[in-house]
């Protein structure tokens, strides 16, 4: 159970970063930390004590395998995470070219 709690604390760390930081790049890093904690949680609930990786051994049918469903979900989500992070970066450099700063509070003041 400790692992689940630590995983949640990792999520909260990311949330803290998103709320308190003003630098856009740090906000992007904090968002990906939150994303990683979700991946980790999904991989954790699929684990089975004494299980092996989900590649079937045809010679030995009695093995126990870890749950393949959360792994399949996370597999696609990781690649989507890369695409969304890249999109965030594209927005961030557009903003930097227009306002010349990463600070969201200054951007709010500059408006226009």
């Amino acid at each position: 159970m400790t692992v689940y709690w630590l995983c949640f604390i990792l999520f909260l760390t990311g949330l803290y970063g998103v709320i308190t930081r003003r630098n856009l790049i740090k906000i992007a890093i904090s968002l990906s930390v939150m994303e990683f904690s979700c991946f980790l949680f999904l991989a954790l609930i699929g684990y089975k004590e004494g299980g092996v990786a989900p590649i079937v051994d045809l010679a030995d049918p009695d093995k126990t395998y870890v749950d393949p469903l959360p792994q399949a979900m996370v597999l696609t989500a990781i690649v989507i995470g890369l695409a969304t992070t890249a999109m965030l970066m594209a927005v961030i450099i557009r903003i930097y070219r227009k306002y010349g700063t990463f600070d969201i509070r200054e951007i709010k003041n500059l408006r226009g």
């Binding site: 695409a83 890249a86 450099i93 070219r97």
Partner: peptide, 20 residues
């Protein structure tokens, strides 16, 4: 599909920088 998508994103970022 995945290879071409990621390559497209990377190339778009590089082209944006070159235009600047």
């Amino acid at each position: 599909e995945v290879a071409a998508s990621i390559l497209t994103i990377f190339l778009a970022l590089v082209i944006f920088k070159e235009e600047i």
